[in-house]
Nucleic acid binder design. Structure first.
Length: 407
DNA sequence: TCTGGGGTCCTAGGACCC
DNA sequence: TCTGGGGTCCTAGGACCC
């Protein structure tokens, strides 16, 4: 039996948004920094520096709570447009080390170094693990020097174990889990540390008396199936460190099709109002603005949606959605009436509204056949998109959606 | 301490068809 | 008239991730 070697690497940028903000404003170095918005605003912490983590601040925590724990921290808004370029530079650097990678999120990347030992081996290395460890350290050093961002990495035989290891390695660390020691490394950790076990599964596991990953690994599958259902076998293998030993090749974005020939994925935008609203004009303006936004993104991507979903959250946080299959479109003029209809169907209570969202899914390519019938809209959208390209997204909006902007 | 916004994936019931 | 199952699509909801 051949034992698989730890060659899967999870590369993770430390406190990513905070690190980029510090790069852009060096005076923030060493200060307690919270990215996500100002105290008093509706919102949550999207990134917290280690200085405020020491005070108990965590990402996902409400800004109100964060401001009580860290009243003197520097609070910054999340600047979504700014971080992508830095993430891309890190990806390009990492991908120059190995041809097989998977982008997991804006600040997280998986790399597969299988077969690369010989390429990087040096006479001093006593084993392939030495080689990989040295190469990954070199990569994180290079990210720090060339891009200016701190990164950590975990290396293991499987993706979930590599991810757990990268979390343990933070900050600025690299941790390799030797083949055969995965189960022992995982066993003492709380169940929440394993990717895929969230607050709900954690609660159910605790109710069964299972608090560590070792408990999960040892539990009878008949017990686990009450928590994980069809995923029972996979999670148990994962907790025993037996996950897949190679990384699937990255699929090109928007090229993988489902059996119906549609692209996988979705495009959505949602907004929480600064204060709960009941004014119908205000609601209509927001719905219109959301339609514009998702359609603009769909056109930029060159896709049309065959399903539209409206999301509604009431002031008491009750959240519901209504969706409908439609003739493929990327036009806000076509989408808006449908969204309005979905909203009317969804809104059965008189309570004020906290959040509205619009999502496009079952995306497909622009169809040359269909195009013959709607060249009028196509010309209009081309003109709109061109103006936005030159003067910014907010250069123009449908009249209905401007009210939301002024308010 | 009242809880953002972008996603992915899974489940499940009912309609509808064969 | 009452009886089936299997397969697929549509819709709604929920868990989870960063």
């Amino acid at each position: 039996m051949t034992l698989s070697m730890p060659r899967i690497c999870c590369l993770d940028l430390d406190t990513f948004f905070v690190s980029v903000e510090r790069l852009l404003d060096p005076s923030l170095a060493g200060k307690p920094v919270i990215v996500g918005g100002r105290p008093g605003q509706r919102g949550v912490v999207t990134a917290a520096s280690y200085e405020v983590r020491a005070l108990g601040v965590r990402s996902g925590m409400s800004l109100t709570q964060a401001s009580q724990l860290a009243p003197h921290a520097v609070y910054l808004p999340t600047r979504h447009g700014v971080y992508g370029d830095y993430a891309q530079r890190v990806r390009e650097l990492a991908q120059s080390y190995t041809p097989v990678s998977q982008v997991a999120s804006i600040d997280e990347l998986f790399l597969d170094f299988s077969g690369c030992e010989n390429l990087y081996a040096r006479p001093g290395d006593s084993a392939g693990d030495d080689t990989i460890l040295r190469v990954v350290r070199q990569l994180t050093d290079e990210i720090q020097q060339r891009v200016g961002l701190p990164a950590s990495a975990g290396i293991a035989t499987s993706r979930p174990v590599a991810k757990v290891a990268s979390a343990l390695a933070k900050p600025r660390g690299v941790l390799l889990v030797a083949a055969g020691s995965e189960a022992a490394m995982l066993a003492p950790l709380p169940v929440r540390k394993f990717p895929g076990i969230g607050p709900v599964a954690e609660r159910k596991l605790h109710a069964l008396g299972l608090t560590t990953l070792g408990d999960v690994a040892a539990a009878p599958s008949s017990v686990l199936s009450r928590v994980f259902g069809a995923w029972t076998h996979g999670i148990q293998r994962g907790c025993r460190g037996q996950g897949a030993h190679e990384l699937a090749r990255e699929r090109p974005a928007f090229q993988e099709h489902d059996p119906a020939g549609l692209y996988l994925g979705s495009i959505s935008n949602e907004r929480t109002f600064r204060e709960d609203v009941r004014d119908p004009d205000c609601i209509a303006a927001m719905l219109c603005s959301l339609c514009e936004r998702v359609c603009y993104r769909a056109r930029k991507r060159g896709v049309r949606a065959r399903t539209v979903t409206l999301k509604l959250r009431y002031a008491d946080f009750q959240t519901l959605s209504r969706s409908r299959n439609i003739t493929a479109t990327s036009s806000e003029l076509e989408l808006y009436p449908v969204v309005l209809e979905l909203f009317r169907r969804a809104r059965t209570r008189r309570r004020p509204i906290r959040l509205l969202g619009v999502a496009l899914s079952r995306l497909g390519p622009h169809d040359a056949q269909l195009r013959l019938f709607d060249d009028g809209d196509a010309a209009l959208h081309h003109a709109i998109d061109d103006l936005r390209q030159r003067y910014g997204y907010d250069a123009l909006h449908l009249a209905l959606s401007t009210r939301e902007r002024r308010g």
